Amino acid sequence: MQWSEGTWTHDPGAVIMEGDDLVVEAVEGSDAWRITSYGFIHDSEHALVAPFPPDSAVEVEFTLTLEEQFDQAGVFVRADAENWVKAGVEFADGTPNLGAVVTQGRSDWSSAPVPEWRGRRVTIRASRSEDALTVRARVGEEPFRFVRLCPLEATRALVAGPYLCAPTRSGLRVRFHRWSLTSPDASLH
């Protein structure tokens, strides 16, 4: 997909084209979260989204340069302000973590450390099939690993694309290399 095919959920601080790459700077305090454990609602992520039709997959590739608490980048899938998924890498407690937040009124969070991914190209893939969204991720050309399976309404209108957030600082820049819409994964396993 061309970067120009998307629209921002919330405008980032800066957007720079460098060759085919899109370098995006997050606004300090940007985040996506609803209620659980923290009690607040943050709806200020920077997601470049376009229609995400049934029986398709969205892939986003970026270089992992997250360095400060809660820096994050990956794929954002949105139905509305209370129903969305963000999946990718988030820097938490001193290390990058691969994970997902699924929000259906309230957010949850799953993550696993991937310190060996620092400085490398990461691809996050979200496949939409029937009543499910399957998230996978990989670094470089390694095989995709399973991240998350979550429910979604099969006929619901969705948008999806690359996203980033910087809840605790200014100056986060993420270099996105690719954004594509492809066929969904054939199976869960």
Rank of each mutant, 00 (worst) to 15 (best):
R78I: 13
W117E: 00
D108C: 00
I124Y: 11
V102Q: 06
T134C: 14
T134S: 14
R136G: 07
N97A: 05
V139G: 11
K86G: 07
V102P: 05
V122W: 00
E116M: 10
S129V: 13
R138T: 01
V122S: 02
R128A: 05
V89P: 04
R118Y: 10
D80Y: 08
G140N: 10
S129Q: 15
G88Y: 10
T103H: 04
D93T: 07
P96W: 13
I124H: 03
G119F: 01
R125E: 12
E141P: 08
S107A: 06
A126K: 04
R106K: 14
V85R: 08
E142L: 11
R128I: 03
G140A: 11
T95L: 14
A126E: 05
A112V: 15
R125T: 08
N97I: 06
G99R: 06
S129D: 04
R138P: 09
F91D: 03
A112H: 10
V135D: 01
A126D: 02
S110Y: 07
P143M: 09
S110V: 15
L133P: 07
A112M: 11
S127A: 11
A92I: 09
E90T: 09
R118H: 12
K86V: 13
V114K: 12
V114M: 11
V89L: 02
T134M: 15
E116W: 12
K86N: 06
R136L: 08
L133N: 06
P115I: 10
G105K: 00
E82M: 11
V122I: 15
E141F: 01
T123A: 07
D131I: 05
W84Q: 09
R136Y: 11
V102T: 08
N83E: 14
N83P: 04
G119E: 01
R78V: 15
Q104L: 09
V89M: 02
